[in-house]
Design a protein around this nucleic acid. Structure first.
Length: 126
RNA sequence: AAAGCAGGCGAGGUGAUCGCGAUCGGUGCAUCGUUGCCGGGGCUUCGGCGGCGGCGGCGGUUCGGCCGGUUGAGGAAAGUCCGGGCUCCCCAAUGGCCAGGCCUGCCGGGUAACGCCCGGUGCGGGCGACCGUGAGGACAGUGCCACAGAAACACACCGCCGAUGGCCUCGGUGAGGCUUGCCUCGCCCGGGGCACAGGCAAGGGUGCAAGGGUGCGGUAAGAGCGCACCAGCGGCAUCGAGAGGUGCCGGCUCGGUAAACCCCGGCUGGGAGCAAGGCCAAGGCUUCGGCCUGCGGAACAAGGGUUGGCCAUGGUCCCGUUCCGUUUCAAUCCAGUGCCGCUCGAGGCCGCCGGUAACGGCGGUCCCAGACAGAUGGUCACCCCCGUUGCCUGGCCCCGGCCCGGCGGCGGUGAACAGAACCCGGCUUAUGUCCUGCUUUCCAC
């Protein structure tokens, strides 16, 4: 399951800004970075689109698993979960979910619970 | 039936649905251009001027929205171990000589090329189907061969012999001497002994390796010293395109190591890699004439620069000289994808022909992923597959079990290895199922 374009975060500058200035929420398996949306930093093709309430990117580095298949499965899993339990906020927000290396060992259920928990901590889920 | 050997297909199928990436078409929501009307209102030299909002007409579709169609991972996409294409840099990558480099190394063929593939030869392994092979040269030279061992290019420790020579002794015989049965000297004489000279390399021992092997003869003992067979070397004949095969003859013999230097043959310009590389060129000063730094284009070739070195040839790549052009609206992504490169290719499929094959030729046909924080996924149904179980038909017999087929129930699972990132050809590694052919052994008829 992949995210629809209006919820996908793209562009080098958007990621640079998130890594430098995003508020960080540490979990056991996941790190969340949060930033109020700045549409000016998006690539042109995304700027013309209607802006959704949130944009999110899931980062699974090769430190989590050397196998690309495993990384793809993890990313799809989280994408699907985000669509099912969408974050809610008054102002548009950008999210960046990075998986820690320990996430490779965790079961799916545990990972999704952690995801919910960290979104709740950031006030994006009631 | 069991054990084994070789090869191949494929990587579940069909449909529905919800998503995602490309692409094509539509729509004209949105947006742009143009134009008409209406509204309020600014400036005004009262002629107008510029601009805002709303509604509508016409035209367009760069980006976005919506609708529909088409299409979307692999046999290894992986490891990055070879070979290329493509791109840039060293000016070119042209010819010659030298130097350097190469795990390049049986023969023939294939290929764009290869260290790859196909076919063959030799050697090795297996009862066999088959499998493996790092397979030039050690009489061009130099080096090395640890430990052990006598000796690792010529050696003799133990051992064997001691024919020949030497010494001792017994006998025979000849000569001489005298004390007349003994002594001395001698010998193309015979026996016995010693192991001194010497001979040997069979056996033992050492070692990865001791210099052809086995057997018979031979000898003092031995030894290719002789002979037979085998192995090796050389010559001749013959077969083969060749590596080599076969046969005959010869003298009988030469340690190993070239993944030691080296010699021979072959190949070879080096480096970086799609984050290659290209496109979007202007900026500053000013006395407002221009000037400077750039960038782009044209012409010139006297001089300088030059791949590991030298020479030659050619060219004009850079430096250089001369001339001309450029400087602005918009935008901010100026870079690691903003755009191109970017997927039509040594391309796939089908047929015919040539070839044992790898492969090639001809004809037809098809267009088949191009993302860029990185698209291929989820769910459901049916078919198919596997396991288990029940019933039925048929067959077998040891008479309640087995086998084949069909139908049904339940369960399992769409599997294992694994995710394109410039593109091809190979190699290697990972990996679940199935099919075909063949070999050996056993059983039944």
């Amino acid at each position: 399951m992949a995210l629809p374009p209006q919820h996908r975060l793209r562009g080098q500058r958007a990621f640079d800004r998130l890594y430098r200035q995003g508020r960080r929420f540490q979990g056991e398996l996941i790190v969340l970075r949060l930033l109020p949306a700045l549409p000016a930093l998006l690539p042109c093709s995304d700027r013309g689109r209607p802006q959704g309430a949130w944009r999110c990117a899931v980062v699974v580095s090769s430190k989590v698993s050397k196998r690309a298949v495993r990384r793809n499965r993890l990313r799809r899993l989280l994408h699907g979960h985000l669509l099912a339990a969408a974050p809610a906020s008054v102002t548009p927000q950008w999210l960046l979910l990075s998986l820690k290396p320990e996430a490779a060992l965790a079961c799916e259920q545990r990972l999704l619970e952690e995801c919910d928990e960290i979104l709740r901590k950031a006030g994006l889920l009631r």
